[in-house]
Design a protein around this nucleic acid. Structure first.
Length: 287
DNA sequence: CGATACACCTGTGTGC
DNA sequence: TGCACACAGGTGTATC
């Protein structure tokens, strides 16, 4: 599920329930996920006020008023849901009613104001850590991540510099978070299709004009996905981080043998494996 | 340094 | 219905 647009959608869904509010109870229901949780996690969260929620790449950072930040990664299957927000009103349901715990609910945070945040992650590739707010960007998990694709530091010139001399396929390189932050398997496939670039093309062999297009299409597809994700989240009691409406806009991902949606293209979507992961593309319009 | 394989987990869909 | 297998939105680590 979670690439940059989904993580941003989750962040926006959590913000009204968490920002400016204290954590009144932190129920840590297992020792850890991908890594053990930091010592004293529950005690360090309890009573702390969340000043704001940030996103860096696919990480969410909850800055606390005690100088620490809760670092959250959703892995492959992580979800964060909000229950008990005042709105929307559901007849017959009390304000502070919460649904019963489900399988794979690993961490439950109760917030001042009555909202409950539940971290559910079947595959347990997700992660939680507590890190110093002031030095967050130096944390090993964040230090080497590349520019935010929707920020000013991501540009044709910067991307060209990162790809210079690289012989590996552009598909694999765009999945490398050191080159650009936040892309995953879906949006890399989608951006390459929109840009008309073949996924097996060597990264260092893409001209400036086509790189320009790639930068634009990466920004576009991510922005559109965020917009679509946001629109599916009016109801904060629903699971955040689901695919949202944007899944209906996939042009190539998981569409093997379907016609290429590019106007006037008669190609058929193919699936290949690169670096052990599926790539979907149109062999006719992607060069 | 770059490229690749493997590891970590559970759930779901498919074919026999 | 059971079973084996492939595959799934990520990424750190080990190895060449």
């Amino acid at each position: 599920m979670p690439e940059l647009p989904e993580v941003e959608t989750v962040r926006r869904g959590l913000a009204p329930a968490m920002e400016g509010r204290r954590i009144t109870r932190a129920d840590i229901r297992r020792e850890g996920l991908r890594w053990p949780f930091p010592p004293g996690l529950s005690a360090r969260l309890t009573g702390a006020r969340v000043e704001r929620l940030r996103r860096r790449s696919k990480y969410i950072l909850a800055d606390l008023d005690n100088g620490e930040s809760l670092l959250i990664h959703l892995g492959m299957s992580g979800r964060m849901t909000v229950s008990g927000l005042a709105a929307p009103f559901v007849p017959g349901q009390f304000h502070h009613d919460h649904p019963p715990a489900e399988k794979h609910d690993h961490v439950v945070l109760d917030m001042e104001g009555g909202a409950r945040i539940t971290f559910n992650d079947p595959r347990r590739f997700g992660a939680l850590d507590l890190i110093g707010t002031a030095t967050a960007e130096h944390h090993p998990l964040l230090a080497r991540i590349g520019p935010e694709p929707l920020g000013n530091l991501f540009s044709t010139a910067q991307l060209a510099h990162s790809l210079k001399g690289r012989k590996g396929p552009i598909k694999t390189l765009l999945l490398d978070q050191r080159i650009v932050a936040g892309l995953g398997n879906i949006y890399v496939c989608e951006a390459l299709n929109r840009a008309g670039i073949h996924p097996e093309r060597a990264g260092g062999r893409i001209g400036t004009v086509r790189l320009d297009r790639l930068v634009l299409e990466i920004r576009d597809v991510l922005s559109q996905a965020i917009e679509a994700g946001g629109s599916s989240l009016r109801d904060y009691r629903q699971a955040s981080g689901e695919l949202g409406y944007f899944q209906h806009n996939f042009r190539v991902y998981d569409r093997e043998s379907a016609p290429c949606p590019t106007p006037d293209c008669t190609g058929v979507i193919r699936r290949i494996v690169q670096g052990g992961r599926s790539t979907y593309y149109c062999p006719r319009c992607q060069r």
